[in-house]
Design a binder for these strands. Structure first.
Lengths: 150, 150
DNA sequence: TTATGTGCAAACTCTTTGCATTACC
DNA sequence: GGTAATGCAAAGAGTTTGCACATAA
């Protein structure tokens, strides 16, 4: 939650913007901040609601445009499952996979080196140049299992 | 491509329909057939186009309704990635994962027992009851790599 | 005969686009 | 001062729903 940490993302944003000959804007900063402050995945609508608190005049279209830009530039990543739309989170540099509880919707993030290596091996065996992956494991979380047993 | 094989899916469909007190219809059979005949993932729109060849009066809404039913009953599975909508395929009983070429959009299906076991172990370690999973590996397929090198 | 399925069109949701205006560089 | 970004509203795409009619059980 340190101030310095967010400054790193701002710096990255400034560099992306400069690199592409774009312009820096408060809205882009605010959207990035909303993702930084959230520990979970947000829909564009949710991002919009959050930013509106500090900037009531921001438009939903700006949120969509900015999220697309940030995703293209790899500052944020997105996930989508079921019939729900895309959800975004800040790319904090550490890749992770997801366990998704089908009862309560909770998303548990995890990382397993072994899993990463195995995938690289599978790709290699198939002559496939692996760039990224997304693994979603669906099931029932600890808490919901308990609830179900009561 | 054997006739008997498709009969098995029809049988399953009849049983599902009976179990839920629903009715059997030609449209449901035709939609199932379209998926059976296809070796790739189809959008609802693509299913509609295919079925229209043999039944020009079928409505898109029927396709949507039927795909939902078939998915709920586990006769078909769906996948969605990027901004593209859901794509459906017949559940042929064998679970598999996907390598997706970001150049040409090709989907390569594969199955790796080791990967399955590893996931089960990870779930267990987290007290998570694993029911299913979906792994999408994104990268560049053999053919597109070659093309890129020319 | 009665409840479910279908086709059609309208409605809905999510996302993108055009345009006049504003803000950054 | 010129170019890009924004907010708004309208347009689009994909999907769902209501309803009258058709059809399976």
């Amino acid at each position: 939650m340190s101030v310095e940490k967010f400054e790193l993302y701002l710096k990255e944003l400034r560099s992306v913007v400069k690199k592409k000959g774009l312009k820096y804007s408060l809205q882009r900063e605010q959207i990035l901040k909303a993702l930084f402050d959230s520990s979970c995945h947000l829909t564009p609508e949710e991002v919009h609601q959050k930013v509106k608190i500090i900037n009531p005049s921001i438009g939903l279209a700006t949120v969509y445009r900015t999220l697309s830009l940030l995703e293209k530039e790899n500052l944020v990543t997105s996930i989508s499952f079921g019939s729900e739309g895309k959800k975004y989170e800040l790319n904090r540099g550490e890749h992770h996979d997801h366990m998704i509880c089908i009862k309560c919707g909770k998303i548990i993030e995890f990382f397993k080196e072994e899993l990463e290596r195995l995938q690289e091996r599978i790709a290699k065996d198939n002559g496939f140049k692996l760039l990224s992956h997304q693994l979603n494991m669906y099931g029932i979380c600890k808490e919901c299992q308990r609830e179900f047993n009561d």
